[in-house]
Amino acid sequence: MLSMIRAVSPVLSSLLLGASVLWPLQAHALFGDDEARKAIIDLRQKVDVNRQAADAAALEAREGQAVTRRSLLDLANQLEQLRAELARLRGQNEQLSREVSELQRLQKDVQTGLDERLRQVEPLRVTHDGVSFTSAPAEKRDFDAAMEVLRRSEFEAAAMAYTVFLRRYPVSGYAPSALYWLGNAQYAIRAYKESIDSHRMLATQFPNHLRAPEAMLAMANSQIELKDAKAARRTLEDLVKAYPESEAAAASRERLARLR
Rank of each mutant, 00 (worst) to 15 (best):
Q81T: 05
L96E: 10
L89H: 09
L82H: 11
Q111T: 11
E94V: 13
V100N: 05
K46T: 03
L82V: 05
A58V: 15
E94W: 14
A66W: 14
L103A: 10
L96D: 05
K108T: 09
R88Q: 06
A39R: 00
E85K: 03
Q95L: 08
L75I: 04
Q52G: 13
R37C: 05
Q45H: 15
Q120P: 02
D42G: 11
R119E: 06
A84D: 08
A58I: 14
R69V: 02
R51W: 15
A84I: 04
E63P: 08
V67N: 09
L86N: 11
R44I: 02
R117T: 10
E99F: 01
D33Q: 14
K38M: 11
D34P: 00
G32L: 11
G113I: 01
R105V: 06
K46V: 03
E102N: 12
Q120N: 09
S101I: 02
A61M: 13
Q104E: 03
R83A: 01
V121N: 02
L89V: 09
A84W: 07
R37N: 05
E35P: 04
E60F: 15
A36H: 14
A66D: 08
T112M: 08
R44Q: 03
D115F: 10
V110W: 07
D42W: 07
V67G: 14
E122W: 08
R83V: 06
R105L: 07
T68P: 08
V67Y: 13
D109S: 06
L96F: 15
E99I: 00
V49E: 02
L79P: 02
L114W: 09
D48Y: 09
R88H: 14
E35R: 12
D115I: 01
E99S: 03
R51C: 15
E122F: 15
L89A: 03
I40G: 08
L96W: 11
G64S: 01
V67A: 13
V49Y: 04
R69D: 06
D74F: 07
E60H: 13
E80N: 05
G113F: 07
R44F: 03
A36T: 04
L118I: 04
N50W: 15
Q104F: 03
K46N: 08
V100T: 06
R70H: 05
L86S: 08
D74K: 01
Q95G: 10
L106E: 13
L43C: 08
L72A: 11
S101F: 06
Q78E: 00
L96R: 14
I41N: 14
V121R: 00
Q92K: 13
A84K: 01
V67R: 09
Q92Y: 12
R90I: 02
N93Y: 13
L79V: 03
Q45S: 13
V67P: 03
R117P: 00
T68S: 12
Q107R: 09
